[in-house]
């Protein structure tokens, strides 16, 4: 069964189409990446899944059931724009938000305590949010999304505002929930995270689906047409542009998408001819970031 199904979902604001004819199938227990440039319609899509706004047409089914208030209780949400009642104390706030998701007060209290201990802010549980640091507020916000242990968890840029230690903590929670069968929808601009975590993705722009499906398959379809070169010493004006359609430079590492007619061996020969020493020479699938840029650029053209 699919955790989430969108059929021909369309939403327009004052004649401007935010989402048009979106079809999605998200398998249960998967981690799904919803990608797209700013203003592509991602937030509108997420809001429709959460029933914050209603689509103009099309249907949305969560766990096979049409969206109702009870279904809403089975979704957890971490919005990109974080916000909480700053004048409320941490624990009562979590109990209130848990209550809105259908948790009993005693149960919400018990869980809130556990989570606050796990994220090492139990000492702050009776303090007002405005007294907490930004990082601690982010933790509270994340706890609010998972407190009711939802079978569907929607995370919009979950790692922003966290230091590397807390990123790891949040990621661990996500993986634990994933192991227990939680379906996770991840919306982010950080492609390396999508590549590491997601099973399948959907790329949207201007409200339209550009790409959709299993991440491995998508990458495989592009083939190993990219070379990743790590220079051992100086690169001494070694020019890759004549071999490649695009070049990404990261200091000592360079990634180049080869022109279709180029044989990778030619690059190696050229390097030897120019007396340039390489630490690594590798043929890889294109990084998701490149696919993203290519697809979006093509759609705009």
């Amino acid at each position: 069964m699919n955790a989430l199904e969108l059929d021909k979902v369309t939403k327009a604001y004052d004649g401007l189409t935010a989402v048009s004819n979106l079809n999605l199938r998200i398998a249960q227990s998967s981690i799904f990446g919803l990608l797209g440039p700013n203003g592509a319609g991602k937030t509108t899509t997420l809001r429709m899944i959460l029933r914050i706004i209603l689509p103009d047409s099309g249907t949305i089914r969560v766990m096979g059931a049409p969206l109702t208030e009870t279904v809403q209780d089975r979704i957890g949400y971490l919005p990109e724009e974080r916000g909480l009642y700053t004048r409320m104390a941490v624990r009562p706030l979590l109990v209130f938000l848990g209550g809105l998701k259908g948790l009993k007060e005693s149960e919400a209290n018990r869980r809130a305590k556990q989570w606050l201990e796990r994220f090492e802010i139990a000492a702050w549980s009776e303090r007002k949010l405005e007294e907490l640091s930004k990082g601690m507020q982010q933790k509270v916000q994340f706890i609010a999304a998972v407190l009711h242990d939802p079978p569907l968890l929607i995370l919009d840029e979950p790692f922003t505002g966290f230091d590397p230690m807390n990123v790891a903590a949040v990621k661990n929670v996500m993986m634990e929930m994933h192991d227990r069968g939680t379906t996770i929808i991840l919306s982010t601009h950080r492609m390396e995270q999508v590549e590491m975590m997601c099973d399948s993705i959907c790329l949207v722009d201007h409200g339209k689906q550009l790409l959709d499906g299993d991440l491995r398959e998508i990458k495989r379809a592009y083939g190993k047409n990219t070379v990743r070169i790590e220079f051992a010493g100086t690169r001494n004006g070694f020019d890759l542009a004549r071999f490649a359609t695009s070049v990404n430079r990261y200091g000592t590492v360079v990634e180049a998408r080869l022109r279709p007619e180029i044989d990778p061996q030619e690059i190696l020969k050229a390097a030897v001819a120019q007396n340039i020493s390489l630490a690594r020479f590798e043929l890889v699938e294109p990084p998701l970031a490149d696919i993203f840029v290519e697809k979006v650029t093509a759609a705009h053209a």
């Binding site: 809403q72 949400y77 919005p79 916000g83 009642y85």
Partner: peptide, 14 residues
């Protein structure tokens, strides 16, 4: 509630 953006959380529940 609107400017602190908690409204988004609230509306995802109520």
């Amino acid at each position: 509630e609107k400017s602190s953006r908690i409204i988004e959380i609230l509306l995802s529940s109520v």
